[in-house]
Structures are given as structure tokens and as C-alpha cells.
Write a protein that binds this DNA or RNA. Structure first.
Lengths: 227, 227
DNA sequence: TTCATCAGTTAACAAATGATTAAAAAGGGG
DNA sequence: CCCCTTTTTAATCATTTGTTAACTGATGAA
């Protein structure tokens, strides 16, 4: 599933160039040539990232940016401003409107790609990394192995998924309900007490001597992974 | 409460310059001159943003960055790489290691400030309503933790809900009736004296030495949360 | 001022709620 | 069919909750 990049730019040649390059990188690309339309489209399509020309007919890039950043639903979409002139004042103004980065024309496609990648990585919540660590816990999603203090630990499939889920959002408290939906699956029905049993097994497994317990029970709320 | 910026850089003159400028901007600043120490300090202090020199003694910036980005506890801290040479290859490598931005020396302080501001804004989406503070009280609805003067406090579920409700409208006086409806629920019937008991328990819990009481009794009207 | 009354505070306790645990039953590949 | 994992069940354990009743202090009338 590739990211969706939206281009708000009126110069056709630049749009063509960007589109060509971004699609080669595997992004889904759409665009608009005018500010008012761009804003409408963005709100409709909710892209993952926006490349926005500084100057746009109808509604300037600055205005669009301000509008988006004000709205809770869209203020997480990263915006890269494309500015023609390399003047510093403009750069600063771009950041002030809430842009997340800017690039001056003419720009290097390689650098633009790098910046896009960086912003997308940052806005994607799940660190899609194959090896994730949290304090002295390490889990390898490829080899399906789990380590605590570099010592390997064996987990059953469910316990592995459970830990994998917890480690995506450490410290966050999840209800049994949420755990069932995310670890077992939306449509599977099992008793909510079942969660307790697996929590217990997970606890037993990851608990090696003289370490504090990593899974916190929050009465009447759920469980969380703690440091 | 200002953000904490960590500088990992070995050239004393640059550190001095950065420190001076950042402190003027209102940031809390700390630094280290060597890679190994920097990593240790970062893990200890958990700064809000890192300025990292590309080349560092003991452990290169790239290595530190990789290490941080692997660990769930630290991979949310934005990193800005300071590169000496303006070579594109280096820039790209910087992004690949997980850096969130880079700046080539010599850099404009104004631009650096703008980039810092942008990254901090982006990384602080501590979803407004998930963490609520009132004077020296802080309640985190995600981790279900409550702090007074940064010291954690443990509350039972009902006391948590009660405080959570009060903090939504500080200084407002609620009758026992209103509290029962909003904290216990519309259709649950318990004695109104029960509220007093929970108010007491909440008071005891959030009361740590030499602080004035936070919950005011309004005779024949109810209770309110005060500063 | 004194006393009666009213409203809020406090401590103690029993009931209920929720979590832990062990063990049995049920599935599900190999 | 056997072995391993998962789920259910039920007993036990721990914490929280609501109630009661005694206590404290404010209020205001005599």
C-alpha cells in the first residue's frame, strides 16, 4: 500500500516532472492547478503528503497551509513548500505557516525524494521496522524471536502477537476489548477472560530474575507495557 | 515548559554558538562532545530534539541515530544532522539512517531555528485532550496516570474518573447530583453521601505535603477543583 | 453566648467487583 | 491420533466500592 502524494502546482511542466518521478518511486500521485480546488481535493482525498507551490492562483499555498493546520483532521498531513526564490525570509515564512519543510526551485529530485521519505516515515505511526526494541526487550518480526537482556525467550504465537502489539505503543493502556480486536481480530469472539490468561503467560515468559514486571495491570481499564 | 534540545558536537565553538542561540530562543540546552557519552546522555535525559554532528569521536552520529531509531522509546525524538560538507550523498545517507532533517555547516541560525520549531511542532502531537494539566496536576488519559508536581499518584478507577471530570471544568462547582450523573452514570443509583467519601479519598490521594487543598467544598452546593 | 440543627468529614466494614491462577476441555495441525 | 496451543471454567485472591454511623464544625435563633 503506497503513500498518496498530492501536488498543488500550476506550472504544468513541473507537475509533469514531479508526477513522473514520484510515480517511479511508487507513490500514488494526484494534483490540482489552482488553490481553491487544491484545498477542496485535499480535504476530500486526505493524501499522506502535500507538495505545495508557494504561489498559486485563487488561493496561495500559504493560505491553504494555514487552513489545513488549523483543522485537526488535516494538520497531521505533512506539507512541503516549493518556493521559487531562495530568499531566507520566504523560507521562514513558510515554516511559520505550518509547512513542515520547503524546497527551492530548481530542486534536486533526489533530495526531494529524501525529504518526502523522511516526512512520511515520521507521520506513519507504526515504525515498520523489522526489529523493534523497548528498554531491554527486543523483538524480531522476521525471525519471530524475542529477547530480554539479549537472552532469548520463547513465546507461543498468541503471546508473540500480543507483545508485538504492545510494543507498538508502549505505556499505552489497552482494554481487553481493544486487545481482542487487535491481536485476535475484529470478528473473532472469545471470552474477555482469555486475555488475562495470555497476559499471564506472556508475563511468565518475559520475566527473568531481578527485573521488574513489564506489564502493568490497570484495574477496570486494561493492561500496558511499561519500562 | 520549554523544550529540551540536546547537542552532540565536538567543536567547542559551534557548541557555544548553538547553545547561546538556542537558550535565547527559550530552549533548555545540554550537550556532549563524544558519541558514546552522547548516546548515554540522550537515553538518560530524553530530550525533545537532537542536533547531531555527522562526525563524532567514539561513535559517529550515524551510529547513534540508527541506535535511537531502532528503540521504540527514543525513535520519536527528532534528529537534525549537522553535516560539514554539502555533498548530496551525505545528505541522503543522513535521511537513510533515520535523521529527520539535516543542515549543512555553515548554517544560518535563523533557518536552523525554523527547522527546529517545525520538528518540535510535528513531534508534539500529544493529542491535545489526551494529556490535561491544571496547575501542578497532570492527568494522562492514555496511560491512565496522574501526577502532582511530577510525582505520580495512584487513584482508584472512580477517583480517576472523578478527577478527570473535575479537570474538564476547573473552578466550576458541581452538585453531588451532577457528579453522580457524570461520573457514575445517569442510571446508577447510589447514596449521595457516597460522593463525599470519594471526594475524601481523592483529596487524600492528591494531597502531598505543603500544597494547598485542591478541592473546595461549597456548603450546600457541592464541590469544585481550585488552583 | 449557648444550644439546636444542619451539612460535611471521617473511619470502619461488608459486599461486590475485578484480576490471578490452575486445571480441565476443546481445537487443530502434523 | 497425538501433541501443542488456545479457550473456558471456576476457585481464590485483592482491591474497590457503597453504606453506615459517629464525629466535627458552621450557622443562626433564642
Amino acid at each position: 500500500m503506497s503513500a498518496h502524494v498530492f501536488i498543488a502546482e500550476d506550472e504544468a511542466s513541473i507537475v509533469a516532472l514531479l508526477k513522473y518521478n514520484l510515480e517511479k518511486e511508487g507513490y500514488k500521485v494526484s494534483h490540482s492547478e489552482n488553490g481553491e480546488d487544491a484545498l477542496k481535493q485535499i480535504k476530500l482525498k486526505q493524501p499522506d503528503l502535500i507538495l505545495m507551490d508557494w504561489m498559486l492562483p485563487e488561493l496561495s499555498g500559504v493560505e491553504i497551509c494555514k487552513n489545513l493546520k488549523k483543522n485537526n483532521k488535516f494538520n497531521d498531513i505533512p506539507v512541503i513548500m516549493l518556493t521559487a526564490k531562495g530568499e531566507e525570509e520566504d523560507k521562514l515564512k513558510a515554516f511559520d505557516t505550518g509547512a513542515d519543510d520547503y524546497v527551492t526551485k530548481p530542486f534536486s529530485q533526489k533530495e526531494l525524494n529524501a525529504r518526502i521519505k523522511s516526512l512520511l516515515r515520521r507521520s506513519k505511526p507504526q515504525s515498520s521496522s523489522d526489529i523493534v526494541e523497548f528498554t531491554d526487550l527486543k523483538i524480531d518480526r522476521i525471525t519471530k524471536r524475542v529477547y530480554r537482556k539479549d537472552k532469548e525467550i520463547t513465546l507461543g504465537p498468541t503471546e508473540f502477537k500480543l507483545l508485538d502489539f504492545f510494543i507498538k505503543n508502549p505505556k499505552r493502556v489497552y482494554s481487553r476489548e481493544q486487545l481482542l480486536n487487535n491481536v485476535w481480530g475484529e470478528d473473532i469472539y472469545v471470552e474477555s477472560r482469555t486475555v488475562d490468561v495470555h497476559i499471564r503467560r506472556l508475563r511468565q515468559a518475559i520475566n527473568i530474575q531481578n527485573t521488574k514486571p513489564l506489564i502493568r495491570t490497570v484495574r477496570s481499564a486494561g493492561y500496558s507495557l511499561e519500562s
